[in-house]
Design a protein around this nucleic acid. Structure first.
Lengths: 342, 342
DNA sequence: TTGAAAGCGCTAACAA
DNA sequence: TTGTTAGCGCTTTCAA
């Protein structure tokens, strides 16, 4: 039976209001009395009731906004699932959550939405940022001047006073892929990285992690120069054809992100579907299909659900429990899937 | 801004009590009116407030008990962490959770605790069962006669009317290990399974899954007859010595559970630490240490935290939201770890 | 500096 | 069959 404020008040011989002020350090309470109350609360093992607090705060109407970029991609759809789960939980606790989808990468739209959120007095914002110095300034302005906490997800922006970042550790993800690759090709042979856009920071992190781990740990593996598909399946197919012509004994391919379809179809057409080992990223249905077929050997995932769920809950806890996140960088778990545990 | 019962009542021109009865199908309400209320509630997108409900139910004092066997093992310690997290969440919502630890496997103690729980009118029980027909009968009695819902975790007992089971799919876990093993030894060579007690059902499931997948998918891999360590490191070390003498070209070892230390030390002593591929189970610190060293190549995990957390929350949701779990078998995710994503 | 009281959304007991 | 009401634990405002 959990201890209540009322019980502490009785034990201390004061009123509930006084206990509340003492425990919240809201001042206006005699220092000695406050000390005594805190001691009693500790002895009795007081834990505030979430239900009571949520109910009492319901009139304040905590409003959380989520701005998602690239919503049309399957990955962001998974993130959205996490957001909706958090929305339900928050709303059943008296808060509210609104999602603002942005098609493609569009800092301009994000900023327009942010302006609206400021006017409508939102309590906190979770957003997928993009590299844009004006957007960065606006994030800093919200965090510092307006005191509206902001959590970045999926990608991060440095030096903006944002509360925290929830997403993958791209470097470590690439290193994990490298470890697997070394293991399954017997620590020797030729390996290539096929990436997407040359300017995508997440993909670049993965590629960098992969490359450095191969170079550090697998001296007998030859790393062929990275290719870029620019997110285009046709281009990716061409890249594979050229690679195989140039390196007929190619052992492995690491796909940092998109254009899985183009790559796998080309491999299959050239009869290399089974012999060349392939490691991809993200649990999209297209990717899972190729793993099922045996063309992709491993998929590394970034737990999209958590990326949607956590930022919302972090903001809500900030208001409900007055609890800041413990870590500024909340890296999601790096998940390894094969066709057996998909 | 979430919709409240009061708002629905106003929209329907009735009182809050009537709306409540109509939506809960608690009868005593005019059929037509009830229908109209339900329609309005749906239109307005009514979602009951967890906070309000939790608070109102606090006086009923939902009490959940958790009986853990083999608490001295590191694995159960991980389970306990999940239980404690759930305990905190439940208690902040007005319920209470009590943990009853049992050392070793001891059906007798479990049953004594259950009797006590019945007297003290606990609302629901989560427990780690063991193979024992008297215990099985008691579980059935609680579920059917006393109507105290029971959730099994980690191991299951069939035909007992228990509400559901939360734990690993041992067969699938073994299959996953087999897939990894095939991949890293190049789909050929000799492979052996080292298990613990010959009568441990979880370990047997893993071994069976492993064996059948090797036989089905990797015809060129030779499966050597399974060895049993009986959870003893010294025995396990001897087994390894004998195996390597008998099969000097052994390619891989699958350890279904305990005695990892004995096996890995022997491998290291014989200079086989790197050349023989090893796949183990569970993320215990001992196991992680050997993976860090490179003696173990992969660890397959059964998400102990979830096994502790979920059963408690399932029972609590049953009382708070009147929601039964969707699935009778709640298999925890099969997690693959290497030294890179540990 | 402290106490008293209203009210958040819901359940359940009681009255009509 | 329906309405009314007390109270769950907490926050917050107002009065003392």
């Amino acid at each position: 039976m959990p201890v209540t404020l009322q019980q502490i008040a009785e034990a201390a011989g004061v009123s509930r209001g006084t206990v509340d002020r003492a425990l919240k350090n809201r001042g206006r309470v005699n220092a000695e009395v406050a000390e005594r109350i805190r001691k009693i609360a500790k002895e009795m093992g007081y834990q505030p009731s979430r239900a009571g607090r949520a109910l009492a705060m319901a009139k304040k109407n905590v409003k959380i906004a989520v701005i998602l970029q690239s919503v049309q991609t399957p990955f962001m759809n998974l993130v959205l699932e996490g957001v909706l789960a958090a929305k339900q939980e928050v709303e059943s606790l008296g808060g509210s959550v609104e999602v603002f989808p942005v098609k493609g990468v569009d800092a301009q739209s994000v900023m327009e939405i942010m302006d609206k959120l400021y006017e409508e007095q939102y309590s906190g914002i979770a957003l997928v940022p993009s590299e844009d110095s004006v957007l960065k300034n606006k994030i800093r302005q919200f965090a510092e001047e307006y005191e509206i906490p902001i959590v970045t997800l999926n990608s991060d922006v440095e030096d903006t006073k944002r509360l925290c970042y929830v997403g993958q550790n791209g470097i470590q993800s690439g290193r994990t892929a490298a470890g697997l690759m070394g293991e399954i090709i017997g620590e020797k042979g030729q390996v290539v990285v096929i990436s997407g856009h040359i300017s995508n920071p997440s993909l670049n992190n993965r590629a960098r992690g992969f490359q450095s781990e191969i170079m550090d740990e697998f001296p007998e593996i030859e790393l062929i120069h990275t290719r870029y598909s620019y997110d285009d399946d046709w281009v990716a197919g061409k890249i594979v054809e050229e690679l195989i012509e140039q390196y007929p004994n190619l052992s492995g391919i690491y796909i940092t992100g998109p254009a899985v379809k183009g790559i796998c179809e080309a491999l299959e057409k050239l009869g290399k579907g089974k012999s060349i080992k392939v490691i991809g990223n993200d649990f999209l249905s297209e990717n899972k299909k190729w793993m099922e077929k045996g063309v992709i050997n491993f998929l590394i995932g970034q737990d999209a659900y958590v990326q949607g769920y956590e930022p919302v809950m972090i903001l809500f806890r900030l208001f409900l429990d007055h609890k800041e996140p413990k870590e500024e960088y909340q890296y999601t778990e790096i998940v390894i899937k094969t066709k057996y545990n998909m």
